[in-house]
Design a protein around this nucleic acid. Structure first.
Lengths: 184, 184
DNA sequence: TACCCCATGTAAATAGTTACATGATTCA
DNA sequence: TGAATCATGTAACTATTTACATGGGGTA
């Protein structure tokens, strides 16, 4: 149940309309909690209903009309509580690891290309994170707030490095070894 | 759409009843694709309906009566196709990274304990994986099938190590630095 | 026969995805 | 005035989670 909290965080960082939030979920905060515009509009409605956020008075409500939201005290309180709440990590559900395991049973046909494609995607994502790191977290800055956000970004960076490492290893196993290495 | 493929893989490894599958989803294959017994029974029904698996003739169908399934050729073909299919990685959705980011806005109260708890959970999981590695993949074995499964397990191991590293770093940031380090 | 555990399921709620609909604004 | 784009939404579907229901077999 983290989507509302992702939205509250984004709105505290900067009051926004639904579309602006959607754009920020395509970069920034969305790197760690993705969401589509349909989810976002639905959730904004619920959060407003629950009294955690409100539409800025300037925005008269009408379809097609821009509507900006800000977080109310109750919303900030909810987010503050959530930060320290006990919540177990979700069990892993990764399709690529699973496919590798399926390949152990039915063969690896077509898998090498797919692993290579993923490797490329993760390399691009890593490059993007590293670029953000250079621009947003130069060595001389270290406000506490920034340090926390930097740790989050480093999590993203290290996660991409994990995938790059694993995919490289996996490719060596799938594509690398000749069919009968000990006879070669 | 990976649950049916996870089940097909598990059933190819060994024909099983729903409950047996459930138990194997609590360890082994479930380390990479978790599922509850409700999901499994529902999906077994769909897979049987679709002609990808069948109940072994021995098991007469009745509620409360054990029912074993095996994979049919069509099921194996479906799984073989899926292994090489093109499927983009799912965007990251991680509650802990998100919470850290929320903490940058509303403060870190209660977060340190939660990070510590997660660190402990990941250490246990790592220990379990390493134990499995010792037991199932001793250095002298290297059948191709085993090597692929070993790569999958190493993925799990490296993922846990990533979390342990990141959580340690995050704890140092949240709990570590004194309130005003430059004045201390 | 009462209780417990094995085993298979149903139901309802929540979360996420995909496809489509509609109004407002801008600019050629 | 027509097309493109900004902006907000609805609807239908799929996936997942949580809680509960039911039957079978063994055994105290």
């Amino acid at each position: 149940m983290s989507l509302p909290h992702a939205i509250l965080t984004a709105l505290l960082e900067k009051p926004s309309s639904g579309l602006e939030l959607t754009r920020r979920f395509d970069r920034s905060i969305g790197y760690f909690w993705s969401a589509t515009h349909q989810q976002i509009y639905r959730e904004l409605g619920k959060l407003e209903e629950a009294g955690l956020i409100r539409a800025l008075p300037s925005a008269q409500p009408a379809r097609g009309r821009r509507k900006e939201y800000e977080v109310l005290p109750a919303g900030r309180a909810e987010l503050t509580g959530w930060v320290g709440r006990s919540e177990d990590p979700k069990p892993v559900r990764d399709a690529l690891l699973l496919r590798m395991r399926a390949a152990a049973v039915v063969g690896t046909e077509g898998l090498e290309a797919e692993l290579g494609r993923h490797l490329d995607l993760h390399r691009r994502q890593l490059a993007e994170y590293e670029d953000i790191e250079r621009r947003h977290f130069p060595p001389e800055r270290d406000a506490a707030e920034d340090r926390l956000r930097h740790v989050v970004l480093r999590g993203g960076i290290e996660l991409e490095r994990f995938w790059i490492g694993w995919l490289t290893e996996a490719l060596a196993e799938v594509g690398g070894p000749p069919p009968a290495p000990r006879r070669g």
